[in-house]
Simulated scan of single mutants.
Amino acid sequence: MIRLFISETTPPFAEGLSVILNPDQSRYLAAVMRLSVDDTVSIFNGRDGEWGARLSEVGKKAVKLDLIEQTRPQPTGQGPILAVALIKRSALEYIVEKATELGAGTIQLLTTRRTNASHTNVERLVSIAKESAEQTERLDVPEILAPVKLDRFLAAAAFDRLIFGDENSTHEGTRETLPLLQALKTTAAVERSVILIGPEGGFDDDERLALRGRPDCIPVNLGPRILRADTAAISALTLYQAVVGDWR
């Protein structure tokens, strides 16, 4: 069954509601998939669950859908925040795709002192997240937030717990670096948790000390090998979902 994400700006989904698809989605159904009147698709908006919809009009420029019935309710709760420093474009796009599959609720892009990129195409990342949600039967799309500096993100503190992947596993003072799995076992599902992944060059000493000085931060060890940023992000999200999230 073809699945489409419909903008959250539409009215709440209800039986009989009609939706006009945007030009790209209309072209996809009519020209690429060659659907016609009375064919059915599944749609979701991240708010009202998944609905079956019937094509009621198929034109050269627009396709109209009529909602039939809800096929799945919207799940409650939300996944963790993945805060990730900007890295090379292909690797960052891969992270966004896989983080969507793995249930991240929000993806916050960051710049750090060792970040080797100052900007990214956020609109393209949003498009990748939407496509990934459509393909994996997810009923929402993670919010992709434009890059902010690490210190600004930390100052806002819009989270309960920050799990910091520290590539340097040495001990500092009395705060030891815990294995990620052990740290997750102390994390409650109701908490708004952040998984923080640094840039390709790692965090510098000042950033690491600032992170370790926060009472809401748990420095974790990601194992005996140095992981690429995309590998670290995917591994951390996988363990999170297995221990705290919706894989339990």
Rank of each mutant, 00 (worst) to 15 (best):
residue 165 G to C: 15
residue 165 G to I: 06
residue 167 E to R: 10
residue 168 N to H: 14
residue 168 N to T: 09
residue 168 N to P: 07
residue 170 T to N: 14
residue 170 T to W: 08
residue 171 H to L: 09
residue 173 G to C: 07
residue 174 T to D: 15
residue 174 T to L: 12
residue 175 R to F: 11
residue 176 E to N: 13
residue 179 P to V: 08
residue 180 L to G: 01
residue 180 L to F: 12
residue 181 L to H: 13
residue 181 L to W: 04
residue 182 Q to R: 13
residue 183 A to S: 14
residue 184 L to S: 09
residue 184 L to K: 02
residue 184 L to C: 12
residue 185 K to W: 02
residue 185 K to R: 15
residue 185 K to G: 05
residue 187 T to V: 10
residue 189 A to E: 11
residue 190 V to W: 01
residue 191 E to A: 12
residue 192 R to D: 10
residue 192 R to C: 11
residue 193 S to P: 03
residue 193 S to G: 05
residue 194 V to N: 01
residue 198 G to K: 02
residue 198 G to C: 09
residue 199 P to E: 00
residue 201 G to V: 05
residue 203 F to D: 06
residue 203 F to Q: 02
residue 203 F to W: 14
residue 203 F to I: 00
residue 204 D to P: 02
residue 206 D to P: 00
residue 207 E to S: 11
residue 208 R to Y: 02
residue 208 R to H: 01
residue 210 A to L: 14
residue 210 A to F: 00
residue 210 A to W: 01
residue 210 A to M: 11
residue 211 L to C: 10
residue 212 R to H: 07
residue 213 G to L: 05
residue 214 R to K: 15
residue 214 R to E: 10
residue 214 R to I: 09
residue 217 C to L: 06
residue 217 C to T: 15
residue 218 I to L: 13
residue 218 I to G: 02
residue 219 P to K: 02
residue 220 V to N: 00
residue 221 N to W: 07
residue 221 N to H: 12
residue 221 N to C: 12
residue 221 N to S: 15
residue 221 N to M: 03
residue 222 L to Y: 10
residue 223 G to K: 09
residue 224 P to I: 06
residue 224 P to V: 07
residue 225 R to M: 11
residue 225 R to N: 14
residue 227 L to A: 08
residue 229 A to I: 10
residue 229 A to D: 03
residue 230 D to V: 05
residue 231 T to P: 00
residue 232 A to K: 04
residue 233 A to D: 05
residue 234 I to K: 00
residue 235 S to W: 04
residue 235 S to F: 07
